[in-house]
Write a protein that binds this DNA or RNA. Structure first.
Lengths: 135, 135
DNA sequence: ATTAATCCTAGTAACCCGATAGGGTAAATG
DNA sequence: CATTTACCCTATCGGGTTACTAGGATTAAT
């Protein structure tokens, strides 16, 4: 299940991407448009800024803006930043790999085999979808 | 993330499927083979029995056995039984649909659009993988 | 100086997951 | 028929995560 954090994050990004280039969008404005708790959204945008997708300007007239072209913001990156692993099981995760404590042999594991396929198909979608495709 | 419940369930099913037809496999035996807590596995197999995939025989010499051909046990069914929805967001779930409380218009929602694609790709894999493919 | 905005740390209530406890029930065996 | 074996079922609990909140610090325009 996708967390609300990720869901809100993607929605916020599309809001910002729809903005004319060079203009700012404020937390309050996004929160109202998308029915998101202001404070919660604040923490989400902070994470996105730290990850390098968003820039922010403080003070009066400040707000958030995209640092990259919308075409360059891949969904894989956004989801990994906000949600964590894309794989359904740590032992098939590319970026967050972890061995299972049960399972002496990964290659013999039915779940492993199955989840690699699921992961590859999901990655295929997420890698080829950018923010530009969503606005 | 796949819950351990589902993970263990799939592993247990493959154990049972590997068995010669007509023979029983006991909880204790599966638990030991796959390093799963005996009691936890018990509750998982119970769920699978109630869903109609497994049959059980009580008493001495009892155990679990497949009620269907391994080729007929689709991963979609198993996962829906143990994990619940396959979709990453309730608003794109076929079997567990739920409207989002934010989101006035689903068709205008970026997350919705994206997650439908992910769902379709995942379903494609899970529908075309049966227990027989995993043993 | 004041106001408006982001930045940042901490905390918390509610929920879910994995596991356990403890007995109940059915069936085979001697 | 008693005993043992193995599944059936409910309840509970600790720990972790999620979604959200509080409260102020910092920065920048007016």
């Amino acid at each position: 299940m996708l967390s609300k954090k990720t869901k809100y994050g993607i929605k916020a990004l599309t809001c910002i991407a729809r903005q004319e280039k060079g203009t700012m969008l404020q937390i309050a404005s996004i929160a109202e448009q998308e029915n998101i708790s202001h404070k919660f959204l604040e923490s989400i945008l902070l994470t996105l800024r730290k990850s390098g997708v968003l820039g922010a300007k403080k003070g009066k007239g400040g707000g958030y803006y995209l640092l990259k072209q919308a075409e360059e913001v891949k969904m894989t990156d956004v989801i990994r930043t906000l949600e964590g692993p894309i794989a359904m099981v740590p032992c098939v995760s590319l970026n967050f790999y972890e061995k299972c404590d049960d399972c002496p042999d990964e290659n013999a594991c039915a779940v492993h085999k199955l989840m690699i396929q699921v992961r590859d198909n999901t990655l295929d979608v997420l890698r080829n979808t950018t923010l530009a495709d969503l606005v």
